[in-house]
Design a protein around this nucleic acid. Sequence first.
DNA 1: AACAACCTCAACCGCATCAGA
DNA 2: GTCTGATGCGGTTGAGGTTGT
Length: 210
Amino acid sequence: MAEESMIKREIKNDDQPAGKKEMMNRGAWTAEEDRKLAEVIEIHGPKRWKKIAAKAGLDRCGKSCRLRWMNYLRPNIKRGNITDQEEDLILRLHKLLGNRWSLIAGRLPGRTDNEIKNYWNSHLSKKINQVEKQSEGSRREGSRSTKRRRVVEKKGEDMGEVEDSKSNGCEDSKYEFDHDDFFDFSNESPLTLEWVSKFLEVDNKLCELS
DNA sequence: AACAACCTCAACCGCATCAGA
DNA sequence: GTCTGATGCGGTTGAGGTTGT
């Protein structure tokens, strides 16, 4: 935002030991700061953010530098204009994974977790509320759905209709993606893998019960 | 034109986890 | 096994822009 809004004030800074908080720059980054940060990262690589902040001569904490790099300065970052296909994928992944923005972002090349989180909060959550209100209305209208139908709906809620997509080749989806790749969590941390497998386990049990 | 209400999104915060000593 | 610093993540905030009255 406006660079005039840049202010210096005492901030709570995780990078500083207690009792030795310094005046840190905060607020919007300037082009000059971006340039300095990018220069230092090019030399030292994107790690040891505290040192990077110091070497770049920025009155910024390491965390702030990391965030700036991850969200804006990193190569191959896409900015704005989330396509319908991407939106569709975000919706599906969110149904599958919940608010695991970094996981979702990991499956949208060039997109950051922060961007997806913001997009969700400002656009998609509202959309979903609208759709839910509409579907509530239509449910009251006629409750003729069969047990099977309800089960499919439940699956859709939890799995983002991924199962449907797998079986019918994404007929209702505008986004074409490689299912093997989509379900490949092999690069995720053990915790994530555990979480995903638990999710699938519960989902399988629900299927069996139905 | 002036103001209020709402929206967007960059940035911050706190906490959890990881990795190395 | 424990401690400590670094890193990563999700929730939240707030400045600035946009829209409505």
